[in-house]
Design a protein around this nucleic acid. Structure first.
Lengths: 403, 403
DNA sequence: TAAAACTTCTTAAAATTATAAAAAAGATTC
DNA sequence: GAATCTTTTTTATAATTTTAAGAAGTTTTA
């Protein structure tokens, strides 16, 4: 691969994450001279990869020519899998969804090989339905919970097939580059590239869901640890409570903060006869139960608010640990539970005030994501572009960037 | 600064940390072509910066010419400050101590400006006593406990002078580049460059001392967080014990693991009448008390061993948190308490077995440092070289590397 | 034991990339 | 409103760095 084409890939990546740049700005980002950058940009315009998108405002001199990616040059398939739902969507290079996302209800089992076959079928069908030429698809990004070994393309928790790598299987069947990563890390990636963590160096992104996931941004990059297992926030041993966690240990943070615990405690309190707006909930339909509790809290129900506060405070104690160990500049509440995030800010902040050395916690921003429910899908698409300039599997894909 | 001289600095840094390289190896490390690297190396030999040190064994072809730094080209002053002792030493480029280290008993107060003056005097005298020409000194590296803001050169815990930056003060007085960093981070740095963490990517280095410090190696580099406060392991809120910590909060890990707690518990148990080899200890002379307990443990005293085990187990619980969050490949026990480290390996390992998800803790190595007592000084010297290729304050110092 | 294979080192030509100066376009100032 | 200052872009020239090919040593293999 020629050096020039390496720079072209980097330029495409910058444009994807940053929208538009002038020649001068890019030369700074690439650490190359302006004449060189201008030359490369010229070639890319000729090849139809990027286009001139007008002039930016002057900052005291000649107005800079701005460049941007041609949105329809390439597409990216994003797949977001969780325990009960799988979503598939197609994005263009401006990060717009170009085909309606498809939601599949799909209970993820731990070991069934058939699950993998099913999901691959769905992806295959979805791509066909979009009518987009596979030659115009850069790759497929997949977000899923569990212990994901990024390099081997294996998930040690879900879709464990005897047939080895998930990535290899899907690549073989569909013939496109496939990348997988853990859902919390990808939510952090979307916050880093498109959300509140943009241009930040050290940020902790909490993925509020059935458990509390953690995506870490350290030194301006997603941190994954030596095997990709970093961020197991749910399972830090924080309590002497003898409550068994689904991971097999006891005392995990999750044993006091999961939404399951929330529902259990709510049922307990209602049975004790406390007055509450919460009605008719049971452990057998958690999703509905959680929604009812959340809604009650939003309407000011004391019981619901107190329950959420307790959990928030406990999460906050965990966050205090993160702050002491990693000294981040920002905490972001993201994931599907972030909508109710506002309810949690106060108790978390309270826990931070009580458990942090002031010097280390002062100035830390506690923010709620505005990427919302889509963060997982955006992260899956971003994963593909994130690796575009470094993985060899992209080398032969897009002709225009090969010289 | 010319580009070529940037590469020369990088080469010097590589040699300092790696001893000797061939032209081919260096060209790989620098990402430059072999002819270019050979050319630069030739110039550096001519300038007397490096020398040819013979041929390495062949690996199936012509034997490579090896190069190494001239040890006496430059010297580095290392200063290691802790709460009761300050050590100063002079190193050469082969990391050998070229002048006997000087130990100064010196109780570090929190705010006394005079402390800073005193320490600077000592450094000044020490350099004079070595008889080494200041023009042959690259810089001064300082290791100290507390909240160190590396960029501002300020310590928010010790030597807080109204006169601003510690670094600026010493640089003004001595006229040499000065760098400071937190002791635990520097111990981690010496492990990374010269110890068990060499070539490792993600390692947690515990600095066993009066508290338990933590130096983190993430992605092959020391991690310091956004303000340099990362690694406050001692003060993670882990207990509901209502014991007040010196940091002002309660429930910190330190409230159950500090050597002070060790002594208090020992006294308690002896007063209760337990049979033990430990005799005549009191809280007024902690250093002696700790030594007596350690020695008793080494001779097999049950009381001492149990006390250390309890503390080790508690530290292990903290380490389990580190493992879940950061997924390191290795844990190193270092610092002055590492000698007794062997006594702690078993209880720490025990805690890891009980509190870690097997998938994430399997394969993690738990090692005892072999850098020993000197780790702090070595780290302080290494700090200077670590920053040599990136800080402008070194630009004008060494003439031979300026072209 | 000689040929093959392989690694290192050297050289000169080729390609890449940067520098510097000037031109273009717009903002600011007096 | 002309002169001056800025920033961006272009161009030509200069410097840097790589490529490619071959020479020089060593080990491996036949």
């Amino acid at each position: 691969m020629s050096k020039r084409s390496v720079y072209k890939r980097k330029i495409i990546k910058h444009f994807y994450f940053g929208r538009s740049y002038s020649s001068t700005e890019l030369s700074l980002l690439l650490n190359k001279s302006i004449p060189f950058t201008t030359g490369v940009l010229g070639e890319m315009v000729e090849d139809g990869v990027i286009e001139e998108i007008g002039y930016a405002d002057s900052r005291g001199g000649r107005r800079p020519q701005m460049y941007g990616l041609k949105a329809d040059l390439l597409n990216i398939v994003a797949v977001s899998i969780d325990q009960i739902n799988t979503n598939i969507a197609m994005f263009d290079l401006h990060n717009e969804m170009v085909h309606p996302k498809k939601n599949i209800e799909f209970k993820l089992s731990n070991t069934d090989y058939n699950d993998l076959v099913q999901i691959t079928n769905h992806i295959e069908n979805y791509i066909e339905n979009t009518g987009i030429d596979p030659d115009k698809i850069l790759g497929i990004g997949i977000s899923m919970p569990g212990f994901v070994d990024v390099n081997k393309g294996v998930n040690h928790t879900f879709l464990k097939s005897a047939h080895g790598s998930i990535v290899d299987y899907i690549e073989d069947r569909i013939g496109l580059p496939v990348l997988i990563d853990n859902d919390s890390s990808l939510i952090a990636l979307s916050e880093l590239r498109f959300g509140a963590a943009r241009d930040k160096m050290n940020v902790m992104v909490l993925n509020l869901s059935w458990g509390v996931g953690l995506g870490m941004i350290l030194k301006g990059e997603i941190f994954r640890g030596s095997n990709g297992y970093a961020g197991e926030f749910s399972h830090i041993p924080l309590f002497d409570n003898n409550k068994l966690c689904q991971c097999g240990k006891s005392g995990c943070l999750e044993t006091e903060t999961s939404l399951l615990v929330l529902v259990q405690k709510a049922i307990e309190q209602i049975e004790e006869g406390k007055l509450s707006l919460i009605k008719d909930i049971s452990e057998s339909d958690l999703e509905t139960a959680v929604n009812k509790i959340m809604n009650a809290a939003k309407r000011g129900d004391r019981v619901a608010i107190n329950l959420l506060s307790d959990i928030g405070y406990t999460i906050g104690r965990g966050v205090a640990i993160l702050i002491h160990l990693l000294n981040p500049e920002m905490i972001i509440l993201s994931g599907r539970g972030a909508e109710a995030g506002r309810l949690w800010v106060a108790p978390i902040q309270q826990a931070l005030n009580e458990h942090c050395i002031p010097k280390i916690s002062e100035g830390i921003k506690l923010e709620i994501s505005n990427l919302g429910y889509e963060a997982g899908l955006i992260g899956a698409a971003a994963l593909v572009m994130e690796k575009y300039d470094s993985l060899s599997k992209f080398e032969k894909r897009i002709k225009v960037v090969q010289k």
